[in-house]
Nucleic acid binder design. Structure first.
Lengths: 169, 169
DNA sequence: TATAATTGTTATGACGCATATCAATCATGG
DNA sequence: CCATGATTGATATGCGTCATAACAATTATA
């Protein structure tokens, strides 16, 4: 028994890529769609670059914020990276286990930890940052530097505008 | 027994947001990081907009490609959206179940289905496209139109450049 | 002093991605 | 013509990123 529709459809071979209108033309009109495609590529490339160092995109981000701002609390890391506190716990666990950061009790507030990067953590962070920067240089190599600068500037504006929108709904 | 580091850390209150260097300054230097933040916002907004229509971002994308290109096969949908065939099966299932698309057997190739959107599918697609466009208009409202046009142009260049990189590694 | 809020934790599920494997079917080459 | 390779769709499963819910311990507030 066929599970799907009865034989009824096209008798022609599968439509090939036409010379005219691309198949995702409607989607290409959404800036979000194009951004998603580009970001997906960047993300999977970044995972590949970070994997030999034992890092992922999310743990790299957290390590960067911790290393550059010693003493922050977990809830502040979560806020900075726009993630839930519960997810920050797991990410920080993944940084503590290999000895890249320490959770230090705060005498004045026994609920909290002051987070710090260790020497090993700072070292792996520097290597990861260099590796990611090299990847980005390759990834964006096909784009005019002036156009890329303008792109980055507008992206920052969009990001700021979006954050303001979040705070004043 | 404390599970984490012994009491040893900061005696000061949790560091507040400084007036100077932002805490994610290192991350802000990565275009990918800023794109991820913007895209995450767009994605969660889009999910919220699509949810009342019974759609998700991924099913909306597939429905758009199917509706605009009747007769495509599942593997072509997967290729067009840069997703795995196995994941395309689940997405197409989610469109077939509410009656938005049909899987039609192909007499000349009994392995394949020719996919088509139904009237209901085309109708929900139009509503979804309108809702998403309205959201995007609001989301990008704080950015100069000329700057946004330039941004979109460069984003397309980046996307093309990245795809060429995939095909010629 | 009671209550509200905060911090961190654990559990869990949704979603989007990936790989592996398989059966049925079609294409290809000898 | 037949064996083999390739394709199509399906199922199972795991990983990573997201979310919510609930809770205990602790601090802040009224």
């Amino acid at each position: 028994m066929t599970r799907r529709g009865a034989d009824a459809a096209s008798k022609a071979p599968a439509p090939r890529k036409p010379a005219g209108r691309p198949r995702d033309a409607r989607l290409q009109e959404h800036l979000g769609y194009v951004m998603k495609r580009v970001y997906s590529q960047i993300h999977s490339d970044a995972m590949r670059v970070l994997e030999p160092l034992g890092l992922r995109v999310s743990t790299y981000s957290a390590l960067a914020v911790i290393a550059d701002n010693p003493g922050l609390r977990q809830s502040q890391i979560a806020e900075e990276l726009s993630i839930e506190r519960s997810n920050a716990v797991l990410i920080i666990d993944a940084l503590e286990e290999p000895g890249w950061i320490t959770r230090n009790r705060v005498p004045t507030d026994r609920r909290s930890y002051a987070l710090e990067a260790t020497l090993a953590g700072r070292q792996v962070l520097e290597r990861a940052t260099e590796a990611l920067k090299a990847h980005e240089a390759r990834f964006f190599a096909g784009v005019e530097p002036a156009a890329l600068d303008q792109f980055a500037e507008t992206l920052q504006q969009i990001a700021r505008s979006a954050e303001e929108g979040e705070e004043n709904p």
